[in-house]
Design a protein around this nucleic acid. Structure first.
Length: 464
RNA sequence: GUCCCCAUCGUCUAGAGGCCUAGGACACCUCCCUUUCACGGAGGCGACCGGGGUUCGAAUCCCCGUGGGGACGCCA
């Protein structure tokens, strides 16, 4: 059997980290089994769906490289299909018109909640053989409800949570078409999953409670039941639930915040899923290893520190051309303003080992392309009167040497020896003069890369 | 309230009844490397929610608590 999975977001906001993980797992499952991954946009909530949100979702998936084989399908373009199925169900008696108004249902819910009962439809318009329905009100446009079985249980073997069983007595007759005739979520999902031949429904576990109803509907039209895998949710860094108000950000925000997609993908894959002790793996490896039954059934807390660690790893591993392109875009300065400026790739090779964030990396190397603003604490601490004679001497010597890190190193050593100083006594002030701060890679390498003219000019500023 | 789900270091996890004195990773601490900061290397700290069963033996199976989460829309 050909495996077909889908990702079915509703375009009411950006693609957040939880959605991205759901998409990633669906995608990986299809890839692993040589199946198809389908993207379906669930936009039946016309009020809240926006084209901008659709684009945001597409952008997020594109950035992560989660390519789909079919779609995007838009549910609003499939209304005729839903209406056709709706009519079939009405004809077959597996669905019926309900004339209870919104207000009436609201009152019912309130009363039930007050009485400590589970709020649910009371079955007023549900046709039964021995029952007389109330007279149809003329002023109310009816909704359509699914006639859910009232006895027995629905059970399925969830691929991540194991067997789940729910009594039909717990379920009421859900509305599958609104008064205006548009179909609702639970109905569209079922029709689509069926017609699109979805074999594994992989989604967030907030849908566990929808599953029994969906299975009942599938059975009502004689469809085969797909396998279900309900992924537990992702909690924020603080252990709190992610929501629009709290901590939920677009995956694209991670791009803006200096993360490589490889790091985000690896992190997300490892969050709530494991393959022995494997921590670092690319997507090809992930797709080979991936299996739904290796997913943890409990919620997982997001940990930025670990993401940072992975980011550092992938910055080290990154293709230098790709990395340079990325950093050039983040750098607020022009790396080619002057032909004498250091080569960005060389600079990155000097710095990438120590970075765990692309924005930070860009910031750290900016001094190669523009005069740094000196940190005054570092200036006062390291550029002291006692080292000035040695610095003057070094400045003079540096003007005449061949500009290689070996030669530079030799010169610094010579001056250090001549003035009876320790190497850092000179290296530290040089760092401050050249980079603005007291931390940098090997100072001779920094100087070699900065170039003779620029190095001398920056030192000279402090010799007055 | 009702129903459903979940529960191993601070965090992500390994663990399929004896391989567990509970393993790995991030973070943290110490040391090493060193020209500062990082990187890297070597160590260290650190957990089976509680109580009952079942069993020769339980982190693992069962039950009951407790705690957390989810659902209960003419939202998805």
């Amino acid at each position: 059997m050909v495996i077909r999975t889908r990702f079915a977001p509703s375009p009411t906001g950006f693609l957040h980290i939880g959605g991205a993980r759901t998409a990633l797992f669906s995608w990986a499952y299809a890839k692993k089994h040589g199946g198809k991954f389908i993207l379906r946009i669930e936009d039946t909530d016309v009020e809240r769906s926006t084209p901008a949100a659709v684009q945001a979702i597409l952008d997020g998936m594109h950035w992560l490289g989660l390519d789909y084989d079919e779609g995007p399908f838009y549910q609003m373009q499939r209304i005729q299909t839903y209406k056709r199925v709706l009519q079939t169900m009405l004809d077959a008696g597996t669905a019926y018109y309900c004339y209870s108004s919104k207000e009436e249902l609201e009152t019912l819910r309130e009363a039930q909640t007050l009485a400590g009962e589970k709020p649910r439809y009371n079955g007023k318009w549900r046709p039964e053989t021995s029952k007389t329905l109330p007279p149809i009100p003329a002023d109310i446009a009816p909704t359509v409800r699914f006639k859910n079985p009232q006895t027995g249980t629905v059970a399925w073997e969830d691929m991540v949570k194991g067997r789940i069983e729910i009594a039909n007595a717990e379920l009421d007759d859900l509305i599958i078409a609104r008064a205006d005739g548009t179909p609702t979520y639970n109905f569209c999902v079922v029709v689509d999953d069926f017609e699109m031949g979805i074999t594994q429904v992989i989604r967030g576990d907030d849908h566990v409670n929808n599953t029994p109803r969906q299975i009942n509907m599938l059975m009502a039209f004689g469809a085969s039941i797909p396998q279900y895998a309900h992924l537990s949710m992702i909690l924020g860094d603080d252990g709190q639930k992610l929501s629009k108000r709290h901590g939920a950000v677009s995956v694209m925000q991670y791009h803006e915040d200096g993360y490589l997609k490889e790091a985000v993908l690896n992190y997300l894959a490892r969050l709530g899923w494991s393959h022995g002790d494997a921590e670092i793996f690319n997507m090809q490896q992930f797709c080979e290893w991936f299996d739904l039954d290796r997913i943890t059934p409990s919620a997982a807390q997001f940990n930025t520190e670990k993401l940072n660690w992975l980011n550092a790893h992938y910055i080290k591993e990154a293709n230098i051309n790709t990395l340079a392109e990325d950093i050039a875009a983040r750098l607020q300065v022009n790396t080619h303003a002057d032909p004498g400026m250091p080569d960005l790739k060389s600079v990155l090779n000097l710095y990438r080992e120590r970075a765990n964030n692309l924005n930070q990396l860009a910031k750290d190397i900016a001094y190669f392309y523009q005069k740094p603003e000196a940190n005054m604490t570092d200036v006062e601490k390291h550029i002291t009167p006692e080292i000035m004679p040695a610095m003057h001497k070094l400045y003079q010597q540096l003007a005449h040497i061949e500009w290689t890190d070996e030669a530079i190193h030799r010169e610094i050593n010579a001056v250090v020896t001549e003035f009876g100083l320790k190497f850092p006594k000179i290296a530290m002030p040089l760092r401050v003069m050249l980079t603005g701060i007291a931390q940098s890679p090997s100072i001779d390498q920094v100087m070699a890369m900065l170039g003779q003219n620029e190095t001398l000019a920056r030192i000279n500023t402090y010799l007055k």
